[in-house]
Design a binder for these strands. Structure first.
Length: 108
DNA sequence: ACGGTGACGCTCA
DNA sequence: TTGAGCGCCACCG
């Protein structure tokens, strides 16, 4: 199933989130900023919540800017477990963004 | 068109 | 440091 490349906020979010490699994470704000709407981090979360491309779009790799895992359609607990499984260690329900944060603009 | 909701973020106390 | 409040944008009824 291909990702719809529409002009919608959601489509942009999916395409970007999909680039996040395993063992890395990103934040809602980072995505919004990368899309040129640093104030749309809310909409980003909404889009991921609906995320119709579950396996293709690693929405579980998207966390909050404060290091918190955030929420997850299947339960935050599950999200944390998935991240740990990919190599992302979580400290007290928090993630070291300084170590796992993936920069989009780093290479297109 | 309007109002409410949501997987958020920042500031203030 | 932690908690509460306000602001933000997009989608749905």
């Amino acid at each position: 199933m291909l990702i719809a490349q529409g002009q919608n906020l959601a489509s942009q979010v999916y395409r970007l989130t999909r680039r996040v490699p395993r063992g890395r994470v990103t934040t809602y704000q980072a995505i919004a900023c990368a899309l040129g709407r640093p104030r749309a981090f809310r909409a980003v979360g909404n889009a991921l919540n609906k995320n119709p491309y579950a396996p293709q779009v690693p929405c579980h790799r998207v966390v909050r800017s404060n290091g918190k895992v955030g929420g997850f359609a299947g339960g935050t607990r599950k999200k944390i477990m998935m991240l740990k499984q990919e190599g992302v260690k979580i400290k007290n329900n928090k993630i070291d963004l300084s170590e796992y944060l993936y920069d989009f603009k780093r290479k297109r």
